[in-house]
């Protein structure tokens, strides 16, 4: 009989181990170091160049580093299950009273915790440094846009981690799973970039006489190409501007939140179903 309390504890145990393993991994330290370095540089730029902006605006700059942190998200999660299969530790794990769904969810949450910790720590540091460099001290009004932007960014990363976990579920070889996840990251980026180019070409004649968001003029297939990439739904600028009615990827804030939540949940559900029905041989 399914024991929910026990499974929640199991998810916590697996997530904690996943978090510890990843924080100590070379790839996390390597990519994390560069991300931290870029965050410091952006703080300097934001602080010195835009002296009269609020320090939390550095998060808008940090959004330009989404590619790096999204790459780290897919790479860290891509071998979370395939490594267990390759090292055969999956036999030890699955011989214990733990549901396969808990294994997938625990690993997902562990990876998410790693990336969220990195991003949040870097964002806090960048915020503090920007405040120092710009001479604009933090104010109580900063809290909502700052926390909102961090949550939005983590939601976007949650979708990338779901991609990595799904890839990890279907493969046995960690090298192949990391390469496949990297390829997925490239394909998503290329698809959304192509979607923007194709959309602009298709809409260029109408743009001259259109005062609204040019995205509205894109054909549906170009919009779909953009929407398929979680990064297109980055809501940081929406939140920092304080105008949540502004459209990102043609969608209001709530729709982007719903899209990313659905994206992550759909992929995670697919990973759970695949792993539950998989023969471990």
């Amino acid at each position: 009989m399914y024991d929910a309390q026990r499974e929640i504890r199991n998810i916590g145990t697996i997530a904690t181990k996943e978090f510890r393993d990843n924080v100590g991994s070379k790839r996390f330290i390597f990519i994390g170091f560069f991300y931290l370095l870029f965050a410091v540089v952006l703080s300097l730029v934001t602080g010195y160049v835009s002296k009269d902006t609020r320090p939390y605006m550095v998060l808008g700059m940090m959004e330009s580093l989404n590619l790096i942190v999204a790459l780290l998200a897919v790479i860290i999660s891509a071998d979370t299950l395939s490594l267990e299969k390759k090292d055969r530790t999956v036999y030890q794990l699955l011989s214990k009273p733990v549901e396969r769904s808990s294994v997938v969810i625990g690993k997902y949450l562990g990876c998410l915790a790693v990336i969220a910790t990195l991003f949040t720590a870097c964002a806090l540091l960048a915020y503090a440094l920007t405040a120092v460099f710009s001479g604009t001290m933090p104010a109580p009004g900063d809290l909502i846009p700052f926390v909102g932007a961090i949550l939005a960014e983590n939601l976007m990363l949650a979708a990338y981690i779901a991609i990595g976990v799904l890839v990890s579920t279907v493969t046995k070889n960690p090298f192949i799973s990391i390469m496949a996840a990297f390829l997925a990251w490239v394909v998503l980026f290329m698809t959304s970039t192509m979607g923007n180019i194709v959309g602009l070409f298709a809409a260029q004649e109408s743009m001259l006489f259109y005062a609204g968001d040019t995205f509205d003029l894109y054909p549906v297939y170009a919009k779909a190409m953009i929407w398929v990439d979680p990064m297109s739904h980055g809501m940081v600028s929406q939140l920092l501007s304080g105008n949540t009615g502004t459209a990102i990827a043609g969608l209001p804030l709530w729709a982007n939140v719903a899209f990313l939540l659905g994206y992550a949940l759909l992929l995670l559900t697919a990973a759970v179903m695949l792993f539950k029905n998989q023969d471990i041989t």
Binding site: D21, R88, Y91, P97, E99
Partner: peptide, 20 residues
């Protein structure tokens, strides 16, 4: 399976572990 795994101990061939 859930009940079975509560009651059964399993030693795989060449038992695998987390090496680090």
């Amino acid at each position: 399976h859930y009940e079975i795994r509560k009651l059964v101990g399993y030693l795989p061939e060449r038992p695998p572990f987390y090496e680090s």
